[in-house]
Design a protein around this nucleic acid. Sequence first.
DNA 1: TAAAAACTTTACCTTAACGTAAACTTCACG
DNA 2: CGTGAAGTTTACGTTAAGGTAAAGTTTTTA
Lengths: 128, 128
Amino acid sequence: MIEIQKTYSISDLAKEFDITTRSIRFYEDQGLIKPSRRGQTRIYSPQDRVRLKLILRGKRLGFSLAETRRLFDLYDADRSSAAQLETMITLIDEKKIHLQQQMEDITVVLMELSSVETRCRSELKDLT
Amino acid sequence: MIEIQKTYSISDLAKEFDITTRSIRFYEDQGLIKPSRRGQTRIYSPQDRVRLKLILRGKRLGFSLAETRRLFDLYDADRSSAAQLETMITLIDEKKIHLQQQMEDITVVLMELSSVETRCRSELKDLT
DNA sequence: TAAAAACTTTACCTTAACGTAAACTTCACG
DNA sequence: CGTGAAGTTTACGTTAAGGTAAAGTTTTTA
């Protein structure tokens, strides 16, 4: 059985994720994606596409590209030495703490926004 | 009964929140805080302090200063016209949707990190 | 096969959010 | 009373994350 790997052009991905090709090339520049080439032309694999998705998710969470790269490197890392593994666990814990803080912040802000919204709606009703 | 309002110097706040005085002055420049003055010297009220706290929370959530300012303006806004109130509700809803998306992202990433961490710990155990 | 469409590199430009330095004023205190 | 700490303004520098433009190649497609 022959496996056929779907591929994407740079503008396929740009369209799909609604970003510019410039951004995609920039992410490559920063070492976040490494598409293969046919001649000079970049060819993106499904794996590359997943990476891109992860980059964008990271951005939504306020990660810098450098941080996201850090996480990718962690993920790809050499998992043979105990030292490496321990560094990795430490970094993961740091990230987790940060994200939990963010969750709390979001919860609070969401409640506050809802409360302001409720007041707005009631004032709006009183205005009629 | 006489109310005594506690005040803070710029470096009080800088120390408390572990930021530079430069940042605090910059936030003022961008219209996010408006401390009073004694001569040239800035005097911060408890309300100013709260604002600063909110700015920093916004930053943790990935808000730009401009966005945070937007939210402050919303909050302080003239609440007399129906149009104003409707704009406000719309903006609040947008923010809420954005934050909910962020919550989902965080939940997913936290689970993924935990899973990687578990694998790390088990590999670490096998190494001994 | 000619022209349009998509791709490439190189290089300079832009914005946000401060950092840093200079030059000056104003207090607190030993 | 001078001196050091903390405050001020002004202004230029820096970094991240792209935008934009030029100039060239390759690939489609009418």
